[in-house]
């Protein structure tokens, strides 16, 4: 198979665009998709300092690599969750990437170790507060990510969410008619109040397969194994369902999510509406000062519960 744009051998066929591309043309395709995402949602400029949330997986490391390559000022944050071998291995991957790739761009890595800072790994914390591990993990990561962004003066935080993630989440939200969540499912959430940093998802136009292909082509050494807690997640079920539909009619995921975004944009500036609502609802947490809609933020509530449980247990 030959590249559609030049005569070199193709390395990937993308049925949704009805095109096969060689290494160089595919790389250009990926960069173009990221540039389009950044421009069309006014995510950031080359003046902004970006904080990328990295997990050691393909999406986040690839995002960091692309942003640096495109000339953006991007540092990263890794949250060590203390989940056995998975955390040890993923942390190694992130560290190696930092030393071998990011260092050349003078980019920095921040590491937050949950076991060290909060006194227990994420699974132990979840047990203490009687919540599912992934929910506890979500609260922890969101909190630490925002804290570092605000404390260290980053203009924007970026995550590696891709088209499959967003389409699967949209499917889940639609199946349960979670309209509140639908409003928030945009690739760019503006900063709200002083305490919440702006959030962006520059990879939302690319599928997981395209991102993994980019990682393989550019020798980005990521952790292929999944977090053991992800087993049996709803998201996986939605993704498999969507991929089966995608096989039948290529472009399904793209149309599903991007049409949703178009409609949302037309439904007048949804993001402004959210920012306005947040501004009305949020105030500083009584304990830590980060923005929250309750008196004490969910992170502080969770940690107080964990400390209490640890003392009585």
């Amino acid at each position: 198979m030959r590249c559609r744009k030049c005569t070199h051998p193709a390395v990937i066929k993308m049925p949704r665009h009805n095109i096969s591309l060689c290494k160089d043309c595919f790389t250009e395709f990926v960069h173009t998709q990221v540039r389009r995402a950044v421009k069309s949602h006014r995510m950031f400029t080359t003046d902004d300092r970006i904080l990328v949330a990295v997990s050691g997986g393909k999406d986040s490391l690839t995002l960091w690599a692309i942003l640096m390559k495109l000339g953006y000022r991007a540092d990263a944050l890794y949250v060590d969750l203390g989940i056995g071998d998975y955390s040890i291995l993923s942390r190694q991957k992130v560290q190696r990437f930092t030393d071998t790739v990011a260092a050349a761009y003078q980019a920095n890595l921040h590491v937050h170790t949950v076991e060290q800072e909060q006194g227990a790994g994420i699974r132990e914390l979840a047990t203490l507060v009687h919540r599912p591990t992934c929910a506890t993990c979500g609260t922890m990561k969101r909190y630490q990510f925002n804290r570092v962004a605000v404390e260290q003066d980053y203009d924007v935080m970026a995550t590696g969410h891709n088209l499959d993630d967003e389409a699967a989440r949209l499917l889940g939200n639609v199946l349960h008619w979670q309209t509140d969540y639908l409003d928030k499912q945009t690739p760019m959430l503006p900063a709200s109040l002083d305490g919440f940093a702006k959030k962006v998802k520059p990879l939302y136009r690319l599928t997981e397969r395209e991102i993994a292909a980019y990682a393989v082509i550019h020798q980005i050494d990521y952790i292929v194994d999944e977090c053991p807690m992800a087993k049996g997640s709803k998201m996986l079920a939605y993704k498999h369902a969507l991929n089966r539909l995608e096989a039948e009619s290529p472009g399904t995921k793209h149309t599903f999510y991007l049409t949703f975004l178009d409609r949302q944009a037309k439904q007048q500036e949804a993001t402004e509406k959210i920012a306005e609502q947040d501004r009305q609802r949020l105030h500083p947490c009584a304990t830590c000062g980060q923005p929250t809609s309750t008196e004490i933020c969910s992170y502080c509530q969770m940690m107080a519960k964990a400390v209490g449980a640890a003392q009585h247990g």
């Binding site: 198979m1 990937i12 066929k13 397969r209 993994a212 292909a213 993704k239 498999h240 991929n243 995608e246």
Partner: peptide
């Protein structure tokens, strides 16, 4: 296996589905 969910790698090179 659904093609959309996998990459096929020979040695360390990606290969297309007609390979």
């Amino acid at each position: 296996l659904t093609p959309e969910a996998y990459l096929v790698i020979r040695g360390d090179e990606l290969v297309t589905d007609d390979t």
